[in-house]
Amino acid sequence: MSEVLTAIMLLAGALLILIGAIGAVRMPDLLLRMHATTKAGALGAGLIAVASGIYFTSPEVSVRAVAILAFVVLTAPVAAHMIGRAGYFTGAPLWEKTLKDELRDNLDRTGHYLHSGSPQEPGDDNDSQRQ
C-alpha cells in the first residue's frame, strides 16, 4: 500500500517539476516564468519529499522529509518575491501583450522609492518641497 502511494507521489511530483521546467522555457517574460517555476516546482519537490517520508518508515527520516517540505514551501515564495522585485526594479521587459502595469508610473527608479496615488508631475519630484 505504501509502495503504491510512494510511486504515485514520486511520479506526480516529477511531472509537476517537468511542467514548471516547460513553463520556464515557453513563457514570454520574467514574471510569467516565475509564475510557472515557483509554484509547480515547490509543489513537486514537496510531493517527492513526502513520498520519501512515507517510503522510509523510520521516524528520523520522516522528520527530515517534513523539514525539506517545510523549508521548500516556506522559502520558495520569499525567494520569488525578492527575484521578482529585483527584476522589476532593474527593468526586465514585460510581455508586449501585458494589459496593466500600474506600478510603472509610481516608481522612482533612482531611489527604489514607491509612492501611491496619482503619478507625480514633472518638476515636482521632491516630496519634502511639497510640505
Binding site: 517539476i17 521546467a21 520556464a24 520574467l30 517555476t37 515547490a42 519537490a45 521548500v72 527584476g87 532593474t90
Partner: peptide, 14 residues
C-alpha cells in the same frame, strides 16, 4: 536578463 538566469538556477537547485 540576469534575473531570468537566477530563476533558472533556483529551479535547477530544486
Amino acid at each position: 536578463s540576469l534575473a531570468d538566469r537566477v530563476v533558472a538556477l533556483e529551479l535547477i537547485a530544486l
